[in-house]
Design a protein around this nucleic acid. Structure first.
Lengths: 149, 149
DNA sequence: AAAATTGGTTCACCTGTTTAACTATTCACC
DNA sequence: GGTGAATAGTTAAACAGGTGAACCAATTTT
């Protein structure tokens, strides 16, 4: 590729990724904003799929300091969405898991997010969206690799 | 598309978009975090390209309340990156523009962001990345349309 | 046994956000 | 042309999320 083409692609990427991120965030917020913040929903999703995990793992996954996770988790423990249980072999570690209430709330909000995403991706033709997601996933893997350096 | 295929695509999309957003944000932060927050950089970019704009426009563009914009702009005015000037015909409106300092800082940080994005997109083959960005832009347009309802 | 590492929390302080109340100005229109 | 509605922006209180440093407690290293 020539320099000029690359520069153009970069500009388009920067501008579109900003736009999509902002708009997507605010559409999700419309769906779940009365129940959870977007970040809280992401946290619930992570624990839901992991069944159980530690603060340190979340901090790594979300690329923030552990103290930020403590704060978020505290709020959600206060709302009895999440519970803490200490490991019996290594008493330093604390496992986080969803309460029944947290589980239900996650499923409810996730349902709404899925409907939203469905209403969007079904507007594309199948081939196009498959290719798109495939490249998006490659990009994701690449970014994860880069984050580690 | 069958239901099952759609459900799978939704799940993949939800998970990859979260991952990419988080990682991209934190990679950008590494590049510019000593000078600006990511949001401040976005604000600078917007005004840089618009030359001049109002708080209301920014609020609309960033999908937040006007008071959130006031707070961000105040901090940047304090750092003399942005200046306010009142419209002479309609004294309610305040135009925001970059100071020389703001201009320079934006160009410096944008340069770093471009290098970052370049280092990423040149890892893909040209055809793939072009298709990807094209679909991404369609998605962006669609989301903008949806936000308006 | 002492020193270093690890997992988490606490604290002070910052950014970004919402909502509601408020100021100042302009517009609509009878 | 004066009154009421609409518009542009700010302020203030309250909250979510983030950093960095200091800290506690438990475990591992040596």
């Amino acid at each position: 590729m020539e320099d000029k083409v690359i520069k153009d692609l970069i500009n388009r990427y920067v501008s579109v990724s900003f736009k999509v991120t902002k708009k997507a965030e605010s559409l999700i917020k419309v769906q779940i904003g009365n129940d959870l913040t977007n970040d809280q929903h992401y946290i619930l999703r992570y624990i839901y799929h992991a069944k159980e995990c530690t603060s340190s793992l979340l901090a790594e996954e979300f690329e923030v300091n552990k103290s930020a996770i403590t704060a978020i988790i505290n709020r959600m423990v206060d709302r009895t969405l999440i519970q803490r249980t200490r490991d019996k072999n290594d008493r330093r570690v604390v496992y986080l898991s969803l309460t029944e209430e947290g589980n239900q709330l996650f499923e409810k909000t996730e349902e709404r997010v899925h409907c939203l995403v469905e209403s969007i991706i079904t507007k594309f033709n199948a081939e196009e969206i498959k290719n798109f997601i495939q490249t998006y996933e490659k990009l994701g893997d690449l970014l994860v690799k880069m984050s580690k350096n």
